[in-house]
Design a protein around this nucleic acid. Structure first.
Lengths: 213, 213
DNA sequence: TTTTTTTATTTTGTATACAATATATTACAC
DNA sequence: GTGTAATATATTGTATACAAAATAAAAAAA
């Protein structure tokens, strides 16, 4: 299995970001149990920082705690996935709008570069890879929004959203076309357009979700 | 000082809900430090469940951790408060819309009762009391929305929003009038109207915030 | 005095210890 | 064999222990 990097100060953050990344990589899948001692040993820490990390992850809906029975990767029902899309449908357009307003030129270039390098992804059908790309794309936009709460909020929820998405309910090509429209709207500094195309993009995902069971 | 009730199974939840309630009551104010041993002793627990609780609270922006220096009640800048209002402006109308759609008759009655009992609050100028009322009002609506993520999300952020609000930037009477309109729109099962009046209500708060420093 | 340096105390972050519960395994009845 | 009771093992939740760092207090220098 792939070795994960550690980007943190405290051991708790180390655990936290490791689990997050493993979920995004689909090395941890919904319903899977997280045994504290196992994670602790794998990362070379005690169970104390594990507890803090899991508590944080729980608040982000990435894991769910069943008292006395442990922590499990959050498994979303269809209803929950739809409900989360409704939230994203409200928040991501705001992020895109603000990105168009407040994003730096460097960020906008980065965003354009990202979508231009993504064409190959549409063909490969590498689900985990596409997931990470999709996550990073939305994350960059939201970080450009200069609203840290908004940014953190959406990034968190997008992880578990992607984690619970099945490959049939994604149209890789359509998604990447959407990303291009969004990137261009943001790069051209058009808040209204950015908001609108982002809304369409998320709505597209919601329709796919509802259709494919 | 008032004695707080405990509504939980684990000790970590006990600490978690206690701190939350104390923030809402303004017994803990922005910038104030939370010394782990003090909280532990006050609640009769060890420092272990404190850590988990603080980690959760941090993810909800109720507290902020400064490595090796401890946890502090989150102190928001004006910009952050405005940014949070922008988020609420997107999410709360969704909650109101869904409350009108999915709320039970019992909940709707409860909501109407709540606003009818609130007239006295406009006069008293008891800030902590008004805060709690405002919190409970919005919380009920969001719990009626049958979108648990949305509900939890907004409730969390409303606590720290209220905690960081100063009395000058609230118009008690106007706020309660707004609540009445919202409650009536929801109770009459009108999603479009509910969404609109909620949007107006939050926008009113945002204007007050921007005006009063 | 006021400022700086040194020493003592407090507080944090992590590791370990332990009791209570949950899960797995074995033994036994049918 | 299959199902149930008894036992053993593993896992959790909490408490305690301890080293490292931060803060406070005391001593020394200006």
């Amino acid at each position: 299995m792939k070795q994960y990097k550690v980007e943190s100060v405290g051991l708790s953050d180390k655990v936290y970001s490791n689990i997050k990344e493993m979920i995004l990589n689909r090395d941890l899948i919904p319903g899977q149990k997280l045994v504290q001692e196992e994670v602790a040993e794998r990362l070379g820490v005690s169970r104390t920082p594990i507890l803090s990390a899991f508590s944080k992850l729980e608040k982000e809906w990435l894991v769910k705690n069943f008292p006395r029975r442990g922590y499990y990767i959050y498994e979303m029902s269809l209803e929950e996935r739809i409900n989360l899309f409704e939230i994203r449908l409200r928040l991501e357009p705001l992020g895109a709008r603000r990105a168009a307003e407040f994003g730096t030129e460097e960020d906008k270039d980065e965003l354009l570069k990202m979508v231009n390098n993504a064409d190959s992804l549409a063909e490969t059908k590498d689900f985990a890879k596409f997931n990470k790309h999709d996550y990073e794309f939305h994350k960059l936009i939201n970080s450009m929004s200069r609203n840290e709460m908004l940014s953190n909020m959406i990034s968190s929820y997008n992880i578990i959203s992607l984690s619970n998405q099945n490959i049939e309910s994604i149209d890789f090509k359509l998604s990447i076309i959407g990303h291009k429209k969004i990137a261009q709207a943001i790069a051209s500094g058009n808040p209204d357009l950015a908001e609108e195309v982002m809304k369409n993009h998320i709505e597209g995902g919601l329709v796919m979700l509802k259709d494919h069971k």
